[in-house]
Amino acid sequence: MPFRFLPDVALADIAFEAESDSPDGLFETCGAAITDIMVDPKTLRPTTERSFSLESEDLDRLLYDFMTELIVIKDVESLLFKEYEVKVSPQGTSLTAVIKGEAIDRERHRLRNDVKAVTMHLFGVKHEGRRWRTTVVLDI
């Protein structure tokens, strides 16, 4: 399962659930979900690359900070991303990300909702067996 929207969780905003077999995959899936909320990804091309590193106290906050970073880049550089490559450290406290997308083009991109923030509601990473799961509620 890449991600699944949860229409009944947040009336005024948008919630989704994501799952993967690794923290790397979970982070990449959350990135893809955020993209999908803001733009039809089929209309987006991976022509511009950005890379960044992050450190946080734990895996929860690392994911929170990662998603926040995507929102900040969208606002500051007007970039939306189609491809995500994330490497999370074994301790789950740092990451490096290489992301590819392009500048917002109102003529060519089918834009959707503006994601403004990641909330703490229901937020947290769960690790069960070989699966990593999270629920994310985004402020729209």
Partner: peptide, 13 residues
């Protein structure tokens, strides 16, 4: 706008 959202994000965390 993003200014207020980031203030809330930073302090909530």
């Amino acid at each position: 706008r993003g200014f207020g959202h980031q203030v809330c994000t930073d302090y909530l965390r």
